[in-house]
Amino acid sequence: MSNPNPSPSSSSSAPIRFGIIGCADIARKLSRAILLSPNTTLHALGSRSLSKAQAFAKSNNYPPSTKLYASYDAVLDDPDVDAVYIPLPTSLHLTWAVAAARKGKHVLLEKPTALNVAELDQIIDACEEGGVQFMDGTMWTHHPRTRVMSDFLQDSQRFGQLHYVQTCFSFAADNDFLENDIRVSPDLDALGALGDCGWYCIRASLFAANYELPKSVTALRNPIKNKAGVLLSCGASLHWEDGRVATFNCSFLSHLTMNISAVGTKGTLRVTDFIIPYEEKSASFSTLSNGGFGEMTLAWKQKPSEHIVNTELPQEVVMVREFSTLVEGIKNRGLAPEKKWPTLTRKTQLVIDAVVASIAQGFEPIQI
């Protein structure tokens, strides 16, 4: 059993004051995370109408002190807001993330972060110019389990050298989702399943490869699109110069699956709930090192080992806490923004772009 939670930031610091722009469903989860995080407070919410903001705040147990605004601009104009969480449709990210950075607000941006890397670069540039922290909302990377899995993948004796990664994230959406959800609209979230589900798979593939970009990306044939041309199901393979390969599949049309399988020269890692753990405060993964067959190949010599990682705080709360700790360091101690996070975001977006380009170019390999 393991409980590798980092120590929270100093309790002597005033909490980071969050503003939320928009009332998307995912904002319910992040609102709860901000309320549970030990170093944050939910200071403001902005919607396109005051009545919608009031209804959202009531249904999600916002404290009476939270300011409710009838516009997104009002949140950015509030001088007491330190950081903003932006769960808006992807097509609006460029406008509002840049506006937030120019107002001096630190930016926690929902994924996919942009429609393409050119838009993302404008967001990152604005954050760098404003001296504000940028982070995307890929929650699973902040779970303590992820660090423990990384330790195994980097262990030359237990795992060896990475050879192959296979990831999958899918869920069977109902007809209402497939007809009306913003994630199937070309005007709102044109990346569809690739941006919503594939983002996680790509990040997991990069994670297994120690965040080294592949040399090329090739989309798998026969992706499924809706009538508007938005991807409902697709996949791709990633290839590194040293022979490492990763494949992923993402879909709105298949049963709920959240798998990573990473195969090295000496070991294998498997996890079946990598995006959202089966349990909120306990997560597991399995490993097998130096496996082999028993006598007459009738059975394996050993079974995989299960590793359980407990966490006091759910992964989305850990993410908010880590982001806010960085913000506090910039605000109160003159530290520079942490560049790790925009770097990982950009690498993920580059692979997204390559998949899109490969599909458009007849499934040809795209160099990165």
Rank of each mutant, 00 (worst) to 15 (best):
D77M: 00
T95F: 01
D187E: 14
M1D: 10
H106F: 08
E312A: 15
S233F: 07
E338G: 04
V132N: 08
L213D: 10
I368F: 03
D353A: 07
T95Y: 01
S65Y: 08
K103L: 01
T218Q: 15
D187V: 05
I86S: 05
P112D: 04
R32L: 07
E129D: 10
L30A: 06
I202R: 06
A33I: 01
A57L: 00
P365Y: 05
L335P: 14
F323Y: 09
A83D: 03
A27C: 10
K225A: 13
S289R: 09
H106A: 10
K103H: 02
I308T: 06
A228K: 13
E364Y: 02
N210T: 08
A118I: 11
D73S: 14
R183D: 02
L120Y: 02
C250P: 01
A27F: 01
G19R: 03
E338M: 08
K339T: 15
F274I: 11
L178P: 02
N210E: 12
S233H: 14
L109R: 04
N249R: 13
A99G: 00
S289W: 15
T218N: 08
L45G: 06
L109P: 03
A219V: 05
L120T: 10
P365N: 07
V117Q: 15
F285R: 12
S358G: 04
L68R: 09
N5L: 14
D151R: 14
F177E: 05
T218F: 03
R221G: 14
V217M: 08
A55S: 13
A55M: 08
V107N: 07
E241A: 14
L288T: 12
P87H: 10
N61D: 11
I86T: 04
I124R: 12
A100I: 08
P144K: 05
V84M: 03
N222P: 11
R48N: 14
V98H: 07
Q349T: 12
E110M: 05
G334Y: 14
H93M: 01
F285Y: 09
P314T: 09
D242V: 02
A24V: 00
N39W: 09
A118C: 03
R158A: 14
L36V: 04
V271A: 09
G294D: 06
S31M: 06
Y72L: 09
V230N: 10
V356R: 13
K227E: 13
A190F: 05
S251K: 11
V327I: 03
P64H: 02
P144M: 00
L109G: 02
A74M: 02
A101Y: 08
F56R: 13
H307R: 03
M149S: 12
